[in-house]
Write a protein that binds this DNA or RNA. Structure first.
Lengths: 345, 345
DNA sequence: GACTGGCACTCGTTACAGTCGAGTGCCAGC
DNA sequence: GCTGGCACTCGACTGTAACGAGTGCCAGTC
């Protein structure tokens, strides 16, 4: 059942018009706005075929057509080109990211930028610890039986844990531990550390072994095993654009889903090969979403990181009737800029 | 124009019923549900007075009465007692806060707890840096001209900044700086540091002065002056309860306001004497809110901190027709628990 | 003087009927 | 294979009527 070129043109026109107007588009309006050189009746026949194939549907008998998730998918895969960003947008990105003072700041600015640019909900994952390397590990004594462990990752991420030592430990012993740990771990990817930490337990001088045991437990348990991922969110107000027409009327489940970090990570954390020409980009349209409550939304996400390595994900979530070419362009551009920014450190 | 006891009873009954049902309450329903020993007609007369005084109003001529902001205010100030928490709620609080691994975790858990408990939007400010004392300041060399400055506050808060040094600096000089800074600043409240940092610039040996100058600039500018406050937010999905009846139909401006950190800080950051018997508690009802877009909401906030000191604020935001006694109780209880938790460090 | 029962009135809500028109499907003809 | 024409569908909108919750007011009672 081949869809000839004109039918594809019709589908593209329907998608574009519907995205622009948010109203079901009829055959007459279609031939007027796009210069398809055929009559409405012909378009109607094409529409009938497209509907049969599941690319569009009619909300009511006497209404125009609306793209289905499948229709958007075809549009994204074969009918659209990624829009180049406008110079104004490029400038906005640069201006927004300049002057970030630390990683927190970078992530915050990025997520707000993405939300503003795309006018959708934006999600940015902090550089994943498991994908980071240890730059330095600091031990700051608080009292003789307590210390603060501060780990600095090469991505700029800093994590701290309060550690309760099993027995009083002298400051010089803490220093020794600190040095031993850093010699062993500095520069290592966090995911490779478990055996190294195990080894440390044995290599360290006997008197500080109990302290080392506690430290290694905290290190492995809270930083490696339960790999502490974090995300930032912005632009939820954008969900209310389009006045409850999207999302079949209730924001509730969507807002609830977005409150779960696990959900957010699932949205943007799993990076895949992506489309050819758009490495790492992932698009999930409506039903394609794994998360039940987000079946009325689309997600455009990508990985980011310095150079070609990927340390985290970012993306946006909006109504299925979003402007895919523009959204994709924005997400990609921001990810690239942030990657460059990280590469500078 | 004295409001006698019965009129106050009527007002209280109206508030309670309206909060429970979300529907305008009429004279007949009122006498039925609350055992005021008078007839509906009498209640109607009282209502007329209450309306004249601005405590209640009629949405339409043929509808029941609804409390005004002023009515809620009177209710909160004089007609309600704070509900004690149920044992289940107490347990929930304890369970929720046990096992937090670091300050981030504490704040996150707290804000989610508050949102869940009150079923409103919750906001928690991170312990303010200006109100904190320096516990330790660490300098981690990244290269000869770059180092990472990590400040650990006594509240457990950790801030880091990447510092670009004006000239290559030897590791031992960095160590010296580190020691000099810590001797001077450790234990000092951050708000008291500016003169101390100034002094440091002169006291430090000549060779490291340029580096010290850079460090002190970063320290003062990013941590003290532009006192970096942070907040966490949760429970926005709760805004959709009551199906758009509250907030006269549009969540938009509210969600937008909540995206601004400045707004959030304004909501919960400014602590005041509060009600007698509820120190530090602050309640703003509808119009009393400074922020235009939040005039259809009420905010219950309080300070928190170890012992009787206050290091930050927390609170919730909901429709003006919230259950004030219960909400107040929850906010106070959570703030107290978190304060205790902080005191343990 | 305070309270009550009764009654007329208001006005939002709901239901129903009728009209309008955008958009369709189909078919005969080019 | 495309087009013009036509009958048909069905949601959106409008107007009318009945309904009823709730009120304000007043005359009467304790």
């Amino acid at each position: 059942m081949g869809l000839d070129d004109r039918k594809l043109d019709v589908l593209r026109a329907i998608v574009e018009d519907y995205v622009a107007t948010q109203e079901p588009v009829g055959s007459k309006a279609l031939v007027e706005r796009h210069h398809l050189n055929v009559s409405p009746a012909t378009v109607r026949n094409d529409m009938a075929v497209l509907e049969e194939e599941g690319y569009i549907r009619q909300p009511h008998t006497s209404a125009g057509r609306v793209p289905t998730d499948r229709g958007y998918r075809l549009f994204v895969d074969r009918l659209s080109r990624i829009k180049p960003l406008s110079p104004a947008e490029r400038r906005a990105i640069e201006r927004f990211l300049i002057g970030a003072v630390d990683l927190d700041d970078v992530v915050h600015r990025t997520v707000r930028l993405l939300a503003q640019l795309t006018r959708h909900v934006a999600v940015v994952q902090y550089p994943s610890l498991t994908r980071s390397a240890v730059r330095h590990l600091e031990l700051v004594p608080i009292s003789t039986t307590r210390l603060m462990m501060v780990m600095i990752a090469d991505t700029g991420r800093v994590e701290q844990r309060l550690v309760e030592l099993p027995e009083p430990t002298l400051p010089e012993d803490v220093l020794e531990l600190r040095q031993a740990i850093n010699e062993k771990l500095a520069g290592q990817r966090l995911s490779d550390t478990p055996p190294l930490v195990q080894a440390l337990n044995d290599e360290v001088p006997a008197p500080v072994r109990p302290a080392m045991a506690t430290l290694s437990t905290v290190l492995l348990e809270t930083l490696v095993e339960r790999h502490e991922e974090r995300v930032a969110l912005a632009g939820t107000a954008n969900l209310t654009r389009g006045g409850l027409l999207d999302f079949h009327g209730s924001l509730r489940p969507i807002l609830e889903a977005l409150e779960e970090e696990v959900v957010l990570l699932k949205l943007i954390g799993e990076v895949e090969p992506g489309l050819p020409g758009a490495p790492g980009l992932r698009i999930r349209i409506g039903d394609e979403n794994e998360i039940e409550d987000l079946r009325s939304t689309s997600v455009v996400s990508t990985g980011y990181g310095p150079g070609s390595t990927i340390v985290g994900g970012m993306g946006v979530l909006g109504p299925t009737r979003m402007d895919y070419p523009a959204t994709i362009a924005s997400v990609r551009a921001v990810a690239r800029y942030v990657g460059d920014l990280l590469a500078q450190n």
